[in-house]
Write a protein that binds this DNA or RNA. Structure first.
Ligand SMILES: NC(=O)c1ccc[n+]([C@@H]2O[C@H](COP(=O)([O-])OP(=O)(O)OC[C@H]3O[C@@H](n4cnc5c(N)ncnc54)[C@H](O)[C@@H]3O)[C@@H](O)[C@H]2O)c1
Ligand SMILES: NC(=O)c1ccc[n+]([C@@H]2O[C@H](COP(=O)([O-])OP(=O)(O)OC[C@H]3O[C@@H](n4cnc5c(N)ncnc54)[C@H](O)[C@@H]3O)[C@@H](O)[C@H]2O)c1
Lengths: 211, 211
DNA sequence: TACTGGCTGTGAAATGGTTAACAACGTTAT
DNA sequence: ATAACGTTGTTAACCATTTCACAGCCAGTA
């Protein structure tokens, strides 16, 4: 199988979430048409994405919901689940911990790390907070493979370095700085401030008008 | 000026942030080469982006840092600043309020809205929390033009509808549901769970290997 | 002055992603 | 039995964006 494009993976994640809802509502099968409406894309995009991953439907019944769910999960998920570490249990970090703690998922945030002695030792949403010094040891102990960076911008690079040192192969970074990291470590940047500024720009009246 | 592409706007926001740092460090002028390194893009991409917005540098000195900063801000920012409302002052909403409150910016979150009577009336990070019923009135009072949605997924559509009703022209949505909204309202979706799942997928060993 | 080097600005090509168009195929209705 | 319909799977065209390649320019230097 050749590599699945980035954008396709993003849509597959969306499809899965929508299909899970459909499944609990008892829907057995679904047309590209319907899934597309839910996901806000065109039907042909859905069909192409499913073609990309090699999943087939029937012209009469569409795609089997449960089968497609399992198939997508087989592509997206690590068998046995994924263990994540969160670095920086501040305002945002704690919000993320309580959020990810809630949902059942194959991804689990199993440990948090900080430098603040007031925070170290606390248990936030069922997740213990360790001294950042222990990252290497705990990562090995828990089998952590991905890291979440929610430290101040000035600390983000060193936090990312520590995570890579500890053996993670993917990083989710909330600090508004581009991280310089080995190319075999996959990075996703979530830049909330940039997203807000983007909304502000395109919400400007003049961005719509004109030749 | 024809419309500036979405991706270019995103990079301009990044450039501006990096240039601000350079400016305070006393850098007067910068080459596409250097800005590209900071932003993790190629030099030609920087030059093309600046060409797109009509900003010129000199082959000998590069681009003037302060001039470029002002020029980019003139494109990105609403003259007079942008006022935002946050709907849903829960875990994430409060983290965002305290974060955006901190930085000085042309974008200000001037009011929060919730349904929880324990939250209504509180002041979070200098921002008062009102009953969601008051949204229309307060939006007019404060001149709010963009909205931030941090309510539970089930409430996201109605929160967005209320914001549109109140006259906002852009929405930043953190709920993991695609919003169905008038096409003249600009939406940016920040899907944190999807970002995490994406990291988990691409961090899988087998996503790198193979023909 | 004439030459060299390194940079900007930009047409043109390449890349990556989306959409149109349609053949193939079950299902249903006649 | 077969014609009509609606859907999937897929090729090819299309579009947006990135990248290449190079002309033009300025500053410094012999
Ligand atoms: N809070 C938000 O809503 C928000 C929005 C956009 C971006 N961000 C970004 O997310 C990051 C965190 O924001 P926040 O509001 O949670 O900040 P915060 O100050 O509340 O939390 C940061 C935490 O990181 C810890 N820390 C500092 N250095 C560390 C290190 N080297 N190793 C481990 N832990 C360390 C601190 O002790 C603190 O607990 C920042 O980079 C910020 O720019 C936050
Ligand atoms: N917390 C996170 O880290 C995180 C991560 C990813 C996504 N999200 C998404 O962000 C959203 C908020 O998450 P959270 O953790 O802050 O949830 P939360 O439950 O802590 O906060 C939600 C807030 O919205 C308020 N609310 C509910 N209905 C409302 C309505 N109709 N109008 C106004 N306010 C209303 C509630 O009273 C509550 O204060 C959710 O959609 C969630 O899926 C959160």
């Amino acid at each position: 199988m050749t590599k699945i494009p980035d954008r396709t993976i993003e849509r597959l994640i969306t499809y899965r979430r929508l299909l899970q809802k459909q499944a609990v509502e008892g829907v057995i099968s679904i047309y590209s048409h319907d899934l597309a409406t839910l996901a806000h894309v065109k039907p042909v995009q859905v069909r192409r994405d499913l073609m990309e991953i090699g999943f087939s439907g029937s012209p009469s019944k569409g795609y089997g919901v449960q089968g497609l769910l399992d198939y997508i999960s087989g592509i997206l998920d690590m068998p046995g689940g994924t263990k994540a570490a969160l670095v920086g249990a501040g305002n945002l970090g704690r919000a993320l911990l309580s959020y990810f703690n809630g949902r059942s998922s194959t991804i689990n945030v199993v440990a948090a790390f900080d430098v603040d002695t007031n925070i170290i030792g606390r248990v936030i949403a069922g997740c213990r907070c360790y001294d950042i010094q222990e990252l290497g040891a705990r990562a090995k102990e828990f089998g952590i493979t991905i890291g979440i960076v929610t430290v101040p911008a000035t600390q983000a690079q060193s936090a990312a370095d520590a995570l890579v040192e500890a053996g993670v192969t993917g990083i989710l970074n909330f600090a508004p700085v581009p991280l310089r990291i080995r190319p075999d470590v996959y990075i996703v940047q979530v830049d909330i401030t940039r997203a807000l500024e983007k909304v502000a720009h395109f919400a400007k009246p003049q961005s719509a008008k004109e030749v």
